[in-house]
Design a protein around this nucleic acid. Structure first.
Lengths: 345, 345
DNA sequence: AAACCTCATGGAATCGATTACACGACTCCG
DNA sequence: CGGAGTCGTGTAATCGATTCCATGAGGTTT
């Protein structure tokens, strides 16, 4: 592969001049510029990003460490992150932590070794020393979706409290009184918050959230199935199961189906995180939709602000309820019953 | 950030010795080794991968250029690729081409600029000069899922012919005679092959595939919707719609639902590419399942073989039919009716 | 005891870029 | 006409690693 020296030789100038042309530095003669560009063309020269990075100490690369790529929510997040980053001149390296702290650490470590310019993280757990050290050491970092309390890192996330209140109101209106939740890992902020918001919303209607009705999941389908089976085995099973993410809702649906029960007649189901498939499940599933694309873009903007020396800002966007049929028919005309089809293109 | 010089100074040795310890070169005294490791520890030193790559001309990174990350099939492929690569000591940079040739080119270009060790591509189109040049110039490359004919690059893919024959047999047995297909882009091998296999299988039953029954899609949900609407507007609409990928099937389901028609009573639906959600749609969708994880792993192995100087091998694995209810009830007991739930974890 | 290995180590070149600095050729202006 | 400024260019240092080569210490063989 041709290097800058080859180009310099071919054009009959020094490497410095070639470099100047390539980085369009002002003081280069038109003549030299033409000859260099011709040489670049004829040799098919492309600058070596590795060498450039070593010298400039910039890789123009962002790291994105995500909890679980197979979760459509995160897939969409990753997509929007890559898009915005590309628009701003950055590439993205995605690391899939698969909800495993040690994998998360592995990715953070390799990304730092590669000297990425900044890190976007959706932490799987309370935060490894590695990550906290990196943040303290000055690595530009932004938390997205989930975050770690007590660390001075901007957070870009959705606030689901209002939407959860809307959901509980919706369920209450439909006559449901015994509501259960499949929670996410307590080590994640989203895991905690969704339970908290749910409990709070129930409280407003004088309803409690007994321990039996809080199942511990891990944001994976299998845990949704397991927890739901536990609910169904209870002497007094809940009338509604609210899954704290879409994969656990899928698992719950499996478990309910396996018992020969039907949604929403026998039991109602709702989920946090809306995805295109929820429109087509049997029945369509009521969900709380996050502005996923906007979150990804805002996170990148915050990170790039930080990298380029501008003050980064935390961002919190509202989530909203999308009512479908999985909780029963809603006769209140004010409620949004039209399935909201989000683009998958 | 500490460099190898700092470590050398701290340990009281030369940088050469530090490098030897880090790459466990045999001739280093136990004493020096201890001192170096202590210095590494105390400084929190991590080797700069950028500098290392510049010197060794190896990045231990693979590029994966994928047609569409939002398609669950490719998401799963990406995941298995990353897993296998990690096991072999490589990182993966994913580029999402979004079925757009110019984006694909963008990613190939940046990946080559970054001097990745090898490239895994699922080409969006017939192949840009850029990619073909890179292959000819000796960049280790492997095609996965889709490929470009006439290029000397190993191909790892699934062969759906037998499964398509099984599907047509299944449909024929259920009494369907007017079968239509939503094809993928003609520029992709999978787009062409699936139509060909379908036509061939129909031929075996004395059925034809009229032009009216071939809709041109682009592997995106929206095109599935559009094409299906066209089918439904025909004077004699088909009895079955076979979508060449899962997203177009989703679009087809939308279109059918929008007309107030029901699957499978009014029209049957089948898809290429099985995904976990197909078990839960209304009705569950009959699909042709690819051994996605195995494909990803095989592709990485082939690429790494090529990179490390071993002869790479093309791999073709069989796909298989997973019959569900979207084509009607099958009374043949030999047919697999159990929904196959693939793990989403 | 001389010759010869082996081993641990350091010095310095190298990878391919960027960029500070020096320098010569011009132009401009008093 | 001469000093100052501008412009285009080249030389060489630099980034952080790896690795070839030289060197000297110590041990073995004859």
């Amino acid at each position: 592969m041709a290097s800058i020296k080859d180009v310099a030789a071919e054009a009959g100038v020094s490497v410095a001049t070639v470099s100047r042309v390539l980085n369009d530095h002002p003081s280069v003669s038109a003549d030299a510029r033409t000859r260099v560009l011709a040489a670049v063309e004829s040799l098919g020269y492309r600058p070596n990003a590795v060498a450039r990075s070593l010298r400039t100490d910039q890789t123009h690369t962002l790291g994105l460490v995500i909890s679980d790529v197979m979760n459509p929510y995160f897939t969409e997040l990753a997509r929007s992150v890559e898009e915005e980053a590309r628009a701003l001149g950055y590439s993205v390296i995605i690391g899939n932590a698969d909800e495993r702290p040690e994998l998360q650490d592995h990715h953070v470590r390799t990304l730092l070794d590669r000297r990425i310019d900044g890190l976007l993280v959706s932490p799987t757990d309370g935060g490894s020393p590695l990550m906290l050290d990196a943040a303290r050491a000055g690595t530009p970092m932004v938390f997205v979706d989930r975050w770690i309390p007590g660390v001075d890192v901007p957070v870009v996330r959705a606030d689901g409290r209002a939407a959860v209140r809307d959901l509980v109101a919706h369920l209450y209106r439909l006559g449901h009184r015994r509501l259960a939740i499949i929670a996410g890992p307590a080590a994640t902020t989203t895991g905690q918050e969704r339970v908290e918001a749910f409990r709070e919303a129930l409280g407003a209607y004088g309803l409690g959230l007994p321990d039996d009705y809080i199942g511990q999941g891990d944001f994976q389908a299998e845990s949704g199935r397991r927890v739901t089976e536990g609910f169904l085995d209870l002497p007094e099973p809940p009338e509604v199961v609210f899954a704290a993410d879409n994969l656990m809702a899928l698992g719950a649906l499996d478990a309910i189906r396996a018992r020969g029960l039907s949604v929403p007649c026998d039991i109602a189901l709702a989920a946090f995180d809306d995805i295109p498939w929820f429109v087509h499940t049997d029945p369509p599933i009521t969900a709380i939709a996050q502005p996923t694309g906007e979150l990804g873009r805002a996170a990148v903007r915050a990170l790039v602000d930080r990298i380029e020396g501008r003050p980064p800002q935390s961002v919190t966007l509202p989530a909203r309820l999308v009512a479908r049929r999985s909780c029963g028919e809603d006769r209140d005309p004010g409620q949004n019953q039209t399935p909201v089809q989000r683009s998958t293109s």
